[in-house]
Computed example of a mutant assay.
Amino acid sequence: MSHPEGQVPLPTTAALTALQQLIEVVAKLRSPDGGCPWDLAQTPETLIPYVIEEAYETVDAIRSGDQKAIAEELGDLLLQVVLQAQIASEQGQFSLTEVAQGISEKLIRRHPHVFGDVEVASVEEVRQNWEQIKDQEKGATTQPPLLSQKLSNYARSLPPLVAAMKISQKAAGAGFEWDSIDGVWDKFHEELAELQEALQGEDKAHQESELGDLLFTIVNLARWQGLDPAEALQGTNRRFIQRFVQVEAVCDRPLTDYSLEELEAFWQQAKAKLGHTQPTTPSEQ
């Protein structure tokens, strides 16, 4: 069904019916009377790995462009939301209704240029208004929260590489920044030398500390160059797997039966064959 230009389609009756069916299915799975033993054994904490796993699988599906896979993974992710809300409802804490109402109210509150009379001239103004309203929601009506509090939230809630980028961006925005990229390169070589020195010793904690410092500096280099380190590493992971697939394809016995020189030759052949093409997901190979 097509919609007039600029008009946002609303959920259909079928979509709302399907969502209600999902809610009822999850409630049945959690029912002490004929429910599923596995679902009944779950708690919000035991489901944390599945929330993370489904989020990453959804991202992977989106990157692949496979619409069927995207729809399926979004369903798996939605299940985790409904399941968490169902457990909370059973414990008298909140329900899916409060979850949906809460996010709707937040979106309306943080978009006064859409739902109110505020005018904005750029995406940057939208972002600034969002951050200001967010601070006000947290009770910072007169004094904005310390930057360190925000940085702690990133470190606590985001994957380390993503958190490092956010922390780096926010700190730089507050003036904690090098004058030029030359300063970042100097820091890189300094941290590399310190890691090499630490690796000569036996203190694993110190070695990890120096490794972390080097990785954080590399994140800063990425930021200066406008690169996404998480995307870069994801691409490298995929290229490595693609090349590994090619190596295994030419081997007629276990990899451990080949010498390092032979494996290196296979690897270089795979690298030359694949080149630096855009990495694909396993489903696209």
Rank of each mutant, 00 (worst) to 15 (best):
A163R: 00
R30F: 12
V250C: 00
M1P: 12
P160A: 11
T256M: 09
R253W: 01
P11D: 04
Q93R: 13
Q225N: 15
T281K: 08
W178L: 06
L83W: 09
A121F: 12
E24F: 06
L255T: 03
A15K: 04
R243P: 00
S95H: 03
Q200F: 09
S148N: 08
I48G: 00
T97G: 12
E261L: 07
A100E: 09
P32Q: 02
L10W: 08
L10V: 10
Y50G: 06
K166Q: 14
E191N: 12
A15P: 00
P11C: 01
G116C: 04
N237T: 11
E262I: 05
D39T: 06
Q67W: 14
K271C: 08
V245E: 13
P32C: 03
L199A: 03
P254Y: 06
E191T: 11
Q200S: 13
A222C: 15
I52E: 15
H3Y: 15
D39N: 08
A121C: 09
G65L: 04
E284H: 07
Y154T: 00
E262P: 05
A155W: 05
D252T: 10
A69Y: 03
T217C: 14
Q207H: 04
T141Q: 12
D76M: 04
Q278G: 05
E90V: 00
A265N: 07
E73N: 10
A249T: 03
E73Q: 15
S157K: 11
D228K: 01
A61D: 02
V26S: 00
F240K: 11
T12F: 00
A41G: 09
Q7Y: 09
A71H: 13
L211V: 02
H189G: 00
L158C: 07
V114T: 15
A198Y: 04
I181V: 12
V25H: 08
A265T: 15
V123H: 14
T141D: 11
